[in-house]
Structure formats: structure tokens, C-alpha cells
């Protein structure tokens, strides 16, 4: 049909326009000690956390005026990874949407990241999400509280060492559902929740306390 019929990858290659916002930003960020890397047309720049705010301000002045996202990755179990454990990725692009740059900051456990809320106020929720999910502390953030998870949840779920499915569930009459016991109850090996067969699957019936009469159950 047209050229699109033979296009291999739907997204065209990200070209760095001469004199465009991305080229200007790359020049400014290289002066700040940024190291560029490229993967499938996506340009990333890794910076020290000390110059992050300066770099983001410079990139914004160069024309990459829009902030899309603040992504975080935990490289704890990444095969062959030698750098620091966390990385915070500021995903910024220009007004036309054609030129995009990923500004990366590597952080060790316990290191804080400077906040970008002074550059974009829209970084507020995005950094709070990163704090909640990955436990990155953004220094100078005006309102660094949990965003998505319940207030009594301990830990940061998107970390690779967060235990999955092993947090006990609390029911409103004060009973705990222990995951190991619950699984055993489903397999028929154990009585399950609070000694009643079927455990939480019985729902209302088990709360009301109408115990089915079955021999051998405690």
C-alpha cells in the first residue's frame, strides 16, 4: 500500500535535529558530566545526583519543556548489573513531541534524589509515586507522602526484595489470615483460617460462626 506497509517498527527512529532542542540539551548536559547511551533510538543521559536539578533546568531552557514521567527501576536482581541499585528516570520531551530524552540518576540504597518539583510542579505526584512504590526519598519535595498504597503498608512494593503474597491479611473482627496456613487450607491439609474448614472462602458464614459439623476438625 504505502511505505507503512513495509515499516518494520511502528515508531520511527528518533532523529537528533541539528540545532533542535535535543541537540542543545545534550550539549548542555554533557558539560555537566552526563554520559549518553542509546538503545533503539531512545537517548538516555546518566547524571550525578548533585547536578540533577541544574541539568533538568538546563534541558528545560534548551527546549525539552515537558515532563512525562518519573520512572524508577530496582536493579537488585538484574543479571550482570554492576552499578548502583536504583535508577530514577526523568522522561522529558519537547513541545512537538518528536524529541525525547531520558535523564537517569543512579542511586544506592539510602541515597536521596533531589526533587524536580522546583522545575516542574507536575513532578509532585510522579515523585510521590516513586517514593511510595520504590522508596526513593526526594530531597526538598514539599509533600512527600504515600500516594497509592494504604498508610499501614510497610515497605515499597516495586522493590525486588518485597515479599509477594506473604503479608498477612487483617479482617475487621481482628483475625489474621496467614498466607501459609491459607494455602494449606486450600490443599485440604489443614483447617485453614481460624480452624474452620474452607477458611476465608466461607465468607459470611465463617464470620457468623455457623460451624459445619465435620469429624476430625479442631
Amino acid at each position: 500500500m504505502t511505505a507503512a506497509a513495509d515499516a518494520a517498527v511502528p515508531t520511527p527512529e528518533l532523529a537528533v535535529l541539528r540545532g533542535g532542542p535535543l541537540e542543545r540539551a545534550l550539549a548542555r548536559l554533557s558539560e555537566l558530566g552526563g554520559r549518553t547511551s542509546e538503545f533503539k533510538g531512545m537517548l538516555s543521559m546518566t547524571l550525578d545526583r548533585g547536578v540533577l536539578v541544574e541539568a533538568l533546568t538546563a534541558a528545560k531552557e534548551a527546549g525539552l519543556v515537558m515532563l512525562t514521567d518519573v520512572a524508577t527501576v530496582d536493579y537488585l536482581t538484574y543479571p550482570g548489573h554492576r552499578g548502583k541499585r536504583f535508577v530514577v528516570i526523568y522522561n522529558i520531551h519537547d513541545l512537538t513531541g518528536r524529541e525525547r530524552l531520558f535523564v537517569r540518576v543512579e542511586l544506592d540504597e539510602g541515597e536521596t534524589c533531589p526533587t524536580a518539583t522546583g522545575v516542574w510542579r507536575g513532578a509532585d505526584f510522579l515523585e510521590r509515586e516513586a517514593y511510595d512504590m520504590m522508596g526513593i526519598v526526594f530531597e526538598g519535595h514539599p509533600n512527600l507522602r504515600k500516594l497509592l498504597t494504604p498508610e499501614d503498608l510497610e515497605g515499597h512494593p516495586h522493590r525486588k526484595d518485597f515479599p509477594i503474597g506473604e503479608s498477612p491479611t487483617l479482617f475487621n473482627d481482628g483475625r489474621f489470615l496467614d498466607p501459609a496456613t491459607f494455602r494449606a487450607g486450600l490443599m485440604g491439609k489443614d483447617a485453614g483460617l481460624t480452624g474452620w474448614k474452607g477458611g476465608a472462602r466461607d465468607g459470611v458464614r465463617s464470620v457468623q460462626g455457623t460451624l459445619p459439623e465435620e469429624g476430625g476438625e479442631s
Binding site: M1, T2, A3, A4, A7, P10, T11, P12, L14, M66, L95, T96, G97, R98
Partner: peptide, 15 residues
């Protein structure tokens, strides 16, 4: 004026 269907066409939006 920013629409990614125009800015970086994907999935044959350029047609």
C-alpha cells in the same frame, strides 16, 4: 498542539 499520533506516528497512523 501535541498529539503523538501526529508527532511520532505508530501503527500506520501516518497513512
Amino acid at each position: 498542539n501535541l498529539d503523538f499520533r501526529k508527532a511520532q506516528p505508530y501503527s500506520s497512523y501516518e497513512d
